[in-house]
């Protein structure tokens, strides 16, 4: 009983951590531009697929991981430069549609550059399971959680403690005043796409040894990251993290106790419930500590 509950909890928290990183990506771009970037899931896929591809080509794993993150960040920056920036004067709705177009394009591109098959990345430190009160903990799970915790702490530090991070927040609160402070608001937008792409890539890479990846893997992950962000209140960093964990745990429990057929429905039920009953999310969008 306890052991199966613990097992579901572990798997929920593990995928939840990835949704949290993805949700943070949504929130950062939303703060900088009020755009919901529907290509966020593709950042996860590109990170994972590039890491697999590089590792298969013989690049040592740590180097493959770093290169894959950099490649994905470059894709994020290019997306902003080539698709979002030129349409900066258009309505937010237009910009959101542009990101949907970009996500379709990136999936197509991934299919051409790589293929349509599932791919696996080798676990970072072996496959010897650890027994935890009757539940099984894979070493890669510890990698996922450790990485997520470190990345989230770094982000919190960046936005709450550095002038550059505060400048990004300031730009989201009041772009005109930010310009008058000498903040280059175009650069803030570029950084937020690069940063969000990097977050997606990190999540996609650490989870791939557990879940596999494919060219269209970003659709589901992106939607679940989006529901995490919406649940926590779009633009609220701490909310996105909590939202990610809630979505992850809820779907693991649904899959475990009901049927795995319900797994993906959970995220959609959460999105709908939030939009109907609490449009500002669990924690709202206002507040001094949104990341």
């Amino acid at each position: 009983m306890l052991s199966s509950f613990l097992q579901f909890l572990i798997s929920g928290v593990t995928v939840g951590a990835i949704y949290a990183l993805c949700g943070l990506g949504f929130s950062i771009i939303f703060n900088a531009s009020h755009v919901i970037n529907f290509a966020q899931g593709e950042f996860i896929m590109i990170g994972a697929m590039s890491a697999v591809w590089l590792a298969d080509a013989g690049v040592p794993l740590p180097l493959a991981v770093i290169l894959a993150i950099l490649v994905t960040m470059a894709v994020g920056v290019l997306l902003e430069k080539l698709a979002v920036e030129p349409a900066r004067k258009a309505s937010v709705t237009t910009l959101i549609i542009i990101t949907i177009g970009a996500s379709i394009f990136l999936r197509g591109l991934a299919q051409e550059v790589w293929d349509k098959n599932f791919h696996k990345l080798e676990s970072f430190s072996g496959e010897t399971p650890i027994n935890l009160l009757g539940a099984v903990l894979m070493p890669q799970t510890i990698w996922v959680l450790g990485t997520a915790v470190i990345v989230i702490l770094l982000l919190a530090w960046f936005f709450n403690r550095t002038l550059e991070g505060k400048a990004m927040l300031a730009t989201s609160f009041n772009p005109l005043a930010a310009q008058l402070m000498g903040i280059n608001t175009k650069r803030v937008l570029l950084i937020s796409f690069g940063l969000s792409a990097g977050l997606g890539a990190v999540g996609g890479i650490v989870i791939t040894p557990i879940t596999f990846t494919a060219y269209d893997n970003g659709i589901m992950l992106g939607l679940k990251g989006f529901s995490a962000a919406v649940l926590g209140g779009l633009g609220n960093g701490a909310g996105a993290v909590a939202g990610g964990l809630i979505v992850g745990i809820a779907e693991a429990m649904a899959a475990g106790y009901l049927s795995s057929a319900y797994k993906d429905a959970v995220a959609f039920i959460i999105i709908l419930a939030v939009l109907v009953f609490m449009p500002n999310g669990l924690f709202g969008r206002k507040g001094t500590e949104r990341v």
Partner: peptide
Amino acid sequence: VFGPLSVEDNLKLGTY
């Protein structure tokens, strides 16, 4: 002013 940020953070942003 940057409403959600603290008074001190507002001042620090002036040094950007």
